[in-house]
């Protein structure tokens, strides 16, 4: 897998990280180094194996635990919004959202 500048731009857009033109080339070479490393996976025969999402699944079966339908979170707006970069009247403010 080889990452080209256009791929890098696309992926940076997808991940919403602005990358300047000057950063592009060194980042591309670092990422290609990483992809070279992870390409080692391709040679492994994993036919018939289930992906292991939760590590303990290899020894025991763990289903999702379910919560009772109770209201346990009360209004903490002031505390929860204390870190907001911009807010007014209980709303987070952002540059205009276009639909």
């Amino acid at each position: 897998m080889e990452l080209h500048p256009d791929d890098l731009k696309r992926i940076a857009r997808l991940a919403r990280i602005a990358v300047s033109d000057a950063e592009l080339a060194p980042l591309q070479s670092q990422l290609n180094g990483i992809f070279g490393l992870i390409d080692e996976l391709q040679a492994v025969d994993t036919k018939g194996l289930e992906p292991l999402a939760h590590p303990l699944d290899v020894v025991q079966h763990l289903p999702q635990r379910l919560r009772d339908d109770k209201i346990t979170e009360l209004d903490q707006r002031e505390a929860n919004m204390a870190n907001a970069p911009a807010s007014e009247n209980g709303l987070f403010l952002v540059p205009k959202v276009l639909e």
Binding site: I11, L14, L31, I34, F35, L41, T46, L52, P55
Partner: peptide, 23 residues
């Protein structure tokens, strides 16, 4: 960026799922 790439369309099976199988 690495993570977004390995999850992106067309690479999910070859990288992410393969990595979970190797796991």
């Amino acid at each position: 960026l690495t993570g977004a790439w390995v999850l992106s369309h067309g690479y999910y099976d070859a990288y992410y799922l393969q990595a979970q199988r190797v796991r």
